[in-house]
Design a protein around this nucleic acid. Structure first.
Length: 260
DNA sequence: ATGTCCACTAGGAGTGGA
């Protein structure tokens, strides 16, 4: 089973890219973030024609998350939870579905802007609420929480740890909250499959960051032990961070995890 | 390197967000 997470930076702008990816890789489950459309405007017909069923928790203009499930692989997705309890004001950033025997949560953690910006405290509060929510999922097992976490778990997940130390995405406050999820029983599946290697999932559009290999690993796949044990491979598909036939990519690449 | 891309409002280019 191939499971993917991808922040597409507008599903409208990226539809051709995503359809191209689905045709190429035929993933079974895809967690999407930054749809930037409400549920009514989500192009579910295009995905149905491509063989995928969709569940979305959309939002006009900003945020918005969804899950695609390959129809041939089985039924679903069946929505379990749309939105993070108590954090509705932060926008559409969490969707939990059941599909293919898993409980899959697509998340888009708030960016926070900078450590001194008021949004940083909101980000930490959102992460606290997330941990409260995932406690139950972790106990049940069969849980995958995948998405754009807007934080680098460790120094191996950033192109220049010294330069970024203590700055947004790299603070002790963010990392300790990430560790809390691991303490609940979640595994960072990509990192366990690819230990010790500097691999990124996001590169700034500006300054030629992608070609200079100046990126961050902020798109993560967490899974409870029963699921993480099934993992056989993980990768980032950098091809989909490149222009294709003149079309502009998302600033994130898809992250892939193979489960037995 | 304030370097790019997206959506919204508006009916063109500026603004906010990432």
């Amino acid at each position: 089973m191939l499971l993917v997470t991808w922040n597409v930076n507008s599903i409208t702008a990226r539809l051709d890219f995503v359809l191209d990816f689905l045709a190429t890789r035929r993933p079974d489950i895809v967690c999407l973030q930054e749809l930037k459309v409400d549920d009514d405007a989500f192009p579910r017909l295009a995905f149905a024609q491509a063989g995928y069923a969709c569940a979305t928790h959309g939002q006009r203009q900003w945020n918005g998350v969804g899950v695609l499930v390959r129809k041939d692989a089985g039924p679903g997705p069946e929505i379990v939870q749309a939105g993070l309890l108590g954090q509705e004001a932060a926008g559409g950033r969490l969707l939990t579905v059941r599909a293919l025997g898993l409980t899959v949560t697509s998340v888009y953690i708030p960016n926070g802007k900078s450590v001194r910006h008021p949004d940083f405290a909101l980000k930490l509060a959102w992460l606290d609420s997330l941990a409260t929510y995932t406690e139950g999922l972790a106990r049940e097992g069969g849980s995958v929480v995948a998405g754009d976490f807007n934080l680098c778990p460790g120094d191996l997940d950033t192109w220049d740890p010294a330069r970024h130390a203590g700055h947004i995405f790299h603070t002790e406050e963010e990392r300790s909250r990430f560790q809390r999820l691991l303490a609940q029983g979640y595994h960072d599946v990509f990192r366990e499959q690819v230990p010790g290697e500097r691999v990124f999932s996001w590169w700034d559009y500006r300054a030629g960051s992608f070609h200079k290999k100046q990126g961050l690993r902020i798109d993560l796949v967490l899974a409870t032990g029963d699921v993480a044990r099934r993992a056989t491979a993980a990768s980032v598909d950098r091809d989909f961070r490149k222009k294709r036939e003149g079309r502009v990519p998302s600033d994130h690449a898809p992250v892939l995890v193979e489960l037995a």
